[in-house]
Computed example of a mutant assay.
Amino acid sequence: MRFLVVIAVMVAAVGAFPSNAGYVLPAGNIGYSGIVRTDGTIEAFPGDFSHDIVLIGPSGIVTKSGKNVQLDRNLHRTKRSAGFVRPEGSVGYSGIVRTDGTIEAFPGDFSFDIVLIGPSGIVTKSGKNVQLDRNLHRTKRSAGFVRPEGSVGYSGIVRTDGTIEAFPGDFSYDIVLIGPSGIVTKSGKNVQLDRNLHRV
């Protein structure tokens, strides 16, 4: 009985919040008060964390302070990197929170496809990368290319051998062309790649 009361209180708390009140998924519910999973487990959030939340998405929670929570498909915490925080805002697996007041939530399929978050964007397994400008808004730059050996984008390289190479922000913003054999930059700091997408 006590278990049902706790669930009812948490579900009521989730329903009490406006538009971004949480998320209802087949695996359970995520709200500002915590997570209620269909496997019967409940995770309550401390008050300080609850008040820090600005965005709840299908793969986790983004906070003002960058203390994000990443969730797997069963709504349990994962050990993935939570992204990064910059003066312009924070980027995580669930979305982007900018200091200009705008929020961008990522769909679940995109969130679970992410393998690397860097200062200039997001690299995915499928090559559906997101390039970000200095204010953390999407840019219209080419996202790079995908080969059987992996994918190359403005944020870095994801290889099918399991290795990842993240590019620093200054290098990312310097890129003007990504081709099958390397990267060309405005400053001439080019990167040549071998057949396995490693630097030569």
Rank of each mutant, 00 (worst) to 15 (best):
T163Y: 03
G40A: 08
G28N: 04
E43S: 10
R98A: 07
L193A: 12
D39H: 12
S81R: 08
T160Q: 10
K125R: 15
I114W: 01
D113Y: 08
T124F: 04
V97S: 12
F110E: 06
D48S: 15
T38Q: 09
G127C: 01
V97N: 14
P18Y: 05
V14L: 10
V146P: 00
I96V: 05
I122T: 01
V158M: 05
G83P: 04
G31V: 01
T102C: 04
I175Y: 00
V69R: 02
N135E: 13
T163K: 11
G179H: 06
G22C: 10
F3K: 11
D52S: 02
S90W: 01
Y154A: 01
F145E: 07
I61A: 03
V6H: 08
K125T: 01
G40L: 12
V11M: 15
V54K: 05
T124A: 05
D174I: 14
D133H: 02
S111M: 08
V130D: 00
S94Y: 07
R86T: 15
K79E: 14
G31H: 03
V69L: 08
S181D: 14
D72N: 14
I114A: 00
F84L: 14
D39Q: 12
D72I: 04
R199Y: 12
I175K: 06
F145Q: 12
A12R: 05
K79W: 06
D39L: 11
N135R: 14
N129K: 08
G40T: 13
I35V: 15
F3H: 14
S181E: 08
A166R: 01
D174K: 09
R86I: 09
G127A: 09
R134L: 10
G66N: 06
S126T: 13
S111I: 02
A16V: 05
S94A: 09
T41K: 07
T163N: 11
T102W: 12
V130A: 06
V69M: 09
P180I: 11
